[in-house]
Design a protein around this nucleic acid. Structure first.
Lengths: 138, 138
DNA sequence: AGCAAGATGCGAAAGATTTTCAGTTTACCA
DNA sequence: TGGTAAACTGAAAATCTTTCGCATCTTGCT
């Protein structure tokens, strides 16, 4: 279970880490802010500080267990690394997030980067809009 | 000159606004953070506060004169609105920024958004990597 | 010139994230 | 199983970027 992933990441298996990883895995939502994780910990009556949440999430990011995304609007959201890269469609009204992958876009990005002599390390494509529901709600 | 653009945006023509617009237009770089603009003002011995820089840039953004971008790494950068939308290639080492446009990618985004019932309001594609120069520098 | 609306500057405030530090826990080996 | 160094943690303080509150100053118009 979680313990293995943490250990393999070269980190000690501690209560905060196990709990946080558990929340990321089992909390319905795929995208959580540090604050979201913290609130969930409080709900579970865990005595874990927000600073620790940030520390752990940052370590998980470094270990490749989670990805950090900086969408518009101040805070970052973290998601479990599902192995494959993907982009996001974000509803600017209700916050709904849809993930998608499009090889055509990926290919073009690679080609464009090459044209400019860049070696890609990472990329972020976020499309902001109104989801079906919010378009109707007037 | 600048005054016209400011007036047309429905804003009073004031020293800070003229100076800031001037910096955006004539400072070699196309992408400046509020801090960059502020430093340039100091260099020119202008008594303009950082709060004003943010206020003015935000107003310019609202008026469509500039675009605000939230790249990774905390601060936002502002660029003069050149009329056409474009995406960015950012060097994670030296900060170099290359702009590009690709209609194929734009089309796919529209199609994907439509598939998910979204109406696009805006989007942001940023590719992070190492530019030619930084790949060699070891 | 004179006035009202709108701007500015400054310091304080806010919000997100990071660092500091002293006390606690974990991993590991005798 | 106990002992210990290294790693980890919580709470508070510190940073950093951006925004606000408010008294004062400018601009645009008469």
């Amino acid at each position: 279970m979680e313990n293995q992933q943490i250990k393999q990441a070269g980190l000690k298996v501690t209560v905060p880490r196990v709990k946080i990883l558990g929340i990321l895995e089992h909390s319905g939502k795929r995208h959580l802010s540090a604050e979201d994780v913290y609130k969930e910990l409080l709900r579970q009556d865990e005595e874990i500080g927000l600073a620790t949440v940030y520390r752990v999430l940052t370590q998980f990011e470094g270990a490749g267990l989670v990805c950090r995304r900086h969408f518009e609007g101040g805070q970052s959201v973290f998601e479990l690394n599902s192995g494959s890269h993907h982009d996001h469609l974000v509803c600017i009204k209700c916050g709904k997030i849809v993930e998608f992958v499009d090889s055509l876009i990926e290919d073009r990005q690679t080609a464009i980067a090459a044209e400019h002599g860049f070696r890609i390390e990472d990329h972020s494509l976020v499309v902001y809009g109104l989801c079906a529901g919010c378009q109707n709600a007037r």
